[in-house]
Amino acid sequence: MAEEMIKVSVWRGDAEGEFVEFDVPRQESQTVLDVVTHIQRHVDPTLSYRFACRVGVCGSCAMTVNGKARWTCRSHVSNVIEDGRIEIRPLESLPVVKDLVVDMTDFFDKWAKAKGSFVPTATRNDEMAEVSPRDKQRRLADAGIECIGCGVCYATCDVVKWKPDYLGPAAMNRSWTLVNDVRDGGNEERIRAIAGDDGCLGCHSQQGCVERCPQKLNPTMAIAGLKRETIRAAIKGKL
């Protein structure tokens, strides 16, 4: 019985390179990560790619599949295949190290630039903070904390493509969770960090990030919240 084959076009090289075609046997419940793994193990061991958990909790395997950024371990071939073909290339908007591997430095640098880290206000000698999960601010924070830094939103965002210094959806989504964390003490500096055209004001609400986030987060909503905080700070003279 003839095996059904998928025509897979894979990016090889870095910024300069080319697409190389492979024929991969189609299998039931096959994911795109399975396809990439098959190529590296049985056809061309020089193919470079990232993965870790294989089960959709780490975000390492994010790549551009048939034009859309996705987690390859959670992308069934049957859902992405077009006319028997799959095109796999690295995440966009980040420098390519080799083949399907990108340099995530910019992504995480912007996280830091957006002050996306917790600033403590209590010590181990203080009582534990009591924050109800039903508290309005806590709910806003909870809506965004499941981000695992996979880079899919960043690779999808148009503004990131147009403005190299734009902080991006993930970094600002994280900032918003901290703005709403009542235990955090770094908001004055944080708002200053995300203000301006390279920060929250650069977002035009196209919502590519919302469309593609595998965790179903809403960075556009977070950024809208940041916009309001920015204006409040500007009016109070705190910028």
Partner: peptide, 11 residues
Amino acid sequence: ENVARSETWLW
């Protein structure tokens, strides 16, 4: 910071 501030007022 001044750039961010003027951009915020423009916005």
